[in-house]
Design a binder for these strands. Structure first.
Lengths: 215, 215, 215, 215
DNA sequence: GATGAATGAGGATTCATTCAT
DNA sequence: TATGAATGAATCCTCATTCAT
């Protein structure tokens, strides 16, 4: 009756809409960008929350107002990159592509992916996970399994009759080869870049050609 | 045989320096073994010198009597593993192998390598380097370039007329694929292991077959 | 009635300031209730202003609009509890009670007090002060000295001829025993509660009986 | 054979005797003393490990070489004080004391205890626990239950036929009264001290007299 | 050589409090 | 007013490295 502000808006019913101010959204974007930079510079393991905050030009406390810990930053960054990927290039692969010869499919899939990784190098860092062998940490799980699932889908489209286990194994191998090749491409001197891109496509084409051929 | 520098400094008596040396060698071996264990468990970045010392059953001070810092431990461990590799399987690849069909060559090269990696998982950890993208740290450089050089030699044996740059690129790609595949193999459940080994060989065979064929 | 200072500042219209005041009172009550809850859950020292604000469903900024710091919250909460005590049970002790035998007086004093503490557990928390020995922090001073004064008055009623210093000492001892006993009672399992209440009364009765008897 | 140092001493069998150097022992004593000081000054909750280290004149790292966290310091300090108590006054209470009249027993028990608390004020701080109501933290548990058990034993000596539950309750009440009285004594001005000591004894004597009398 | 002690900077995280909107 | 953002000092704790014995 005398607290009119609590009547306004239909949000009294829901539990505290936790409405975020525009400034906050900007800070989050800033922090994620800073995190991407730091992850790329020092790697995930060695990245410190302070360095991320410093890179973002804010105090440590501010970072913790938006993220509970380092892992959450990585997770959020991964999510954001995934979204950005879908928004930018995600539609590039239509069902029609699956009708193309393998060589063209690889172009259609890899070129945007490589392009995206050049524009967002943190993507690759997060895909790799930490340096503990055989251990994909939770942080990067989403990215990792999203990629894997996508590859499996494409493969299953080509090879609907292959046993699941085989497709899964092939998908893993393809993903692994891709990650490795991507590293090579990103690390290569500009003059060598195209050659490495071609080489990665060659590996994958030769690997997959017989599979697709038996279609 | 390969430690002539340790003969220098002829102390007074005969037996003493030998003894001391032997103890030192033992300590170093102890420490390197501990380092291998710790690197495999926690990864290189997260490994602490104290944990290595503890694992080796010595005090931190002792560790620093033999190694100036953490990186030196990794370097030395890499060297040792390389030596061990040469001592154990190094001779397996005779010039005669180069006459074999590719499939057999891959068996001859990869099987011992995979076997060795199962026995010395630290090998793989060191080959990978830290999680900084495009950055092979000094620690693992020796391992890395030794492997690369070896692959280049083999490739050059098969393709003596190919341009250097091409061979180098192919070698890098082969090495990268191998590292990725090895991870998959080591991480796979025992039941899946053989299948992943076969898959890795398949990738490499299909990749290299056309190159070798044009011989 | 007891907030005349809030009438000052006669703004333009009539209804506005009243409204604002009422809302403020509500917020303060909200915050104090939240503070009581948090103090009881985590103790005063570990209670954070943010947690109090969160518990009250407001932002930290809002809290600081009504209280300059954490201590002020405790002080205000103490005042409020004291007022509530007076309003609820304060009149229970009429001069007539002082004519009663000690046993009945103890019942008359302790039962409502214990009851009140069950209903307002923050009362006890504030009475105790922090865990710094020999140090009743300012926050809880009001509560503390109000209680002490009250006990002294009652004792003085019984023992008008006793030296001040003695009465003061006895009052302190009574208060201390009461606080300790209250803790025991509040911490006891329900089945044991009555027994602990009886025990506390026993201690005090036996302690005070000789004093009162010499009346 | 060439590591003679490992043959010396029969300690090769046991798992690393973790032999502590004299300096270390001294540091531990220093740190515990510093902790006692800080606990008494600021209370347990507000005491920080850095302040303890600073008080001891060492770096934070040094503290953590001997104690894994703040709680461990409190536990160790409690143990040490308990040992010191037993070593200094522990033998004061012989079975013969139980034959004494209550008044003398109280003198025999309380005087050394009070004396010890004057000499070791941290004892009281640890006995009290944190400021969370109804919550004796693990840190002080040992001290707390040791005291309680002792009181129960004495009471059981006097009242062998009383039900366990009653003795336990009485013991708790006695302990609580003692703790409260002790605080009063320690906080009192020197001139008042003796009077408060007498007062505490009076409370306890009057409380326990009837129990003992009914023997 | 070996040990355990010592260091101090750096890391993650919290929190009382202030500020801009 | 109310909000959420911002701060920065302080907390606990770790670690590579050095030192005294």
């Amino acid at each position: 009756m005398d607290m009119p502000e609590e009547k306004s808006g239909g949000d009294t019913v829901t539990a505290r809409p936790r409405r975020r101010q525009a400034r906050g959204e900007r800070r989050i974007a800033q922090l994620l960008e800073a995190a991407a930079t730091v992850f790329c510079t020092t790697g995930y393991t060695a990245a410190s929350t302070s360095s991320i905050a410093r890179e973002a030009g804010v105090s440590p406390g501010t970072l913790y107002q938006f993220f509970p810990n380092k892992e959450a930053i990585a997770v959020e960054l991964g999510d954001q990159l995934l979204k950005r990927w879908h928004a930018t290039y995600g539609e590039a692969l239509t069902p029609a592509h699956l009708e193309l010869p393998l060589e063209d499919l690889l172009d259609a899939v890899l070129d945007p992916l490589i392009q995206f990784n050049f524009e967002n190098p943190a993507f690759g860092v997060l895909m790799h996970g930490s340096d503990i062998p055989g251990h994909i940490s939770l942080e990067h799980d989403a990215l990792h399994s999203a990629a894997l699932t996508r590859i499996e889908e494409i493969l299953a489209g080509y090879l609907p009759d292959a046993p699941r286990a085989d497709t899964a194994r092939t998908a893993r191998m393809v993903f692994t080869v891709f990650k490795g090749g991507l590293d090579l491409i990103l690390a290569a001197e500009p003059a060598e870049r195209e050659a490495y891109i071609a080489e990665l496509k060659t590996v994958l084409r030769r690997y997959l050609d017989p599979l697709v051929g038996c279609l």
